[in-house]
């Protein structure tokens, strides 16, 4: 464990908690892409199948459970509890255009052709594109509440910190997970234009992000 990975995990946890609390307290999921949240729940489900088979540490197990519970709870809030506020007309990204290529690639490029490893690879590739429905929804509606932008900021920051974690691990322990690194770079690149808007608009005190 290193400081970059720890900060990354904390940033990821903060993002997930921000979103959950925003929906739970405002009793509304307006502006939130339910499709992205379903994809994230799928990412955690396919990645943490080893929850019961391989024990890494208390921290690892606890964080996996927390991520799984919060992601499914968020999907529940969006599609069941506050479904009347779910803006399905704006959440129109064709997720099959993500799932099919990601599934295909996870069969082609993986470390080991076993169910667990292919599902882990699937989750890595899927996570790199899972935010696209949400980013697409924001460009479609042309705006996002500032709380939503804070969620996206910490979510984007988490994988950027993981990139630093991989640089650190490569130089200190020779660790290099090519699939995770390439996907992490792609994932972080998708946030770049959002990061620019976040810094130039939201941090200037605007109540919400309105796209030009």
């Amino acid at each position: 464990m290193n400081v970059f990975r720890l900060l990354g995990d904390v940033s990821h946890l903060v993002a997930i908690i921000i979103l959950f609390l925003k929906i739970f307290r405002s009793k509304s999921c307006a502006g939130i892409s339910g499709k992205s949240q379903v994809l994230f729940a799928l990412v955690f489900t396919t990645r943490y199948l080893d929850l019961f088979t391989s024990f890494i540490s208390i921290y690892n197990t606890v964080m996996k459970v927390v991520f799984l519970v919060l992601s499914y709870a968020t999907v529940y809030l969006i599609y069941l509890r506050f479904r009347s506020s779910y803006d399905s007309e704006s959440d129109t990204f064709r997720v099959e255009f993500l799932l099919v290529p990601v599934a295909g690639l996870s069969f082609l490029e993986n470390y080991d052709f076993t169910p667990i490893e292919i599902l882990w690879t699937f989750s890595i590739y899927l996570e790199s594109v899972a935010i696209l429905p949400q980013l697409f929804m924001i460009t479609k509606t042309g705006e996002a509440e500032s709380i939503t932008t804070h969620y996206l900021f910490f979510l984007g920051l988490y994988r950027a910190l993981y990139l630093a974690n991989w640089v650190w691990r490569y130089h200190t322990e020779g660790f290099f997970d090519q699939i995770a690194v390439v996907s992490g770079v792609v994932q972080t690149i998708f946030y770049c234009d959002f990061f620019y808007l976040y810094v130039t608009k939201v941090l200037k005190g605007n109540s919400k992000l309105t796209l030009p």
Partner: peptide, 10 residues
């Protein structure tokens, strides 16, 4: 190639 250790990252 098989990645020897289990995936230890979240």
């Amino acid at each position: 190639y098989a990645l020897s250790m289990p995936h230890d990252e979240l």
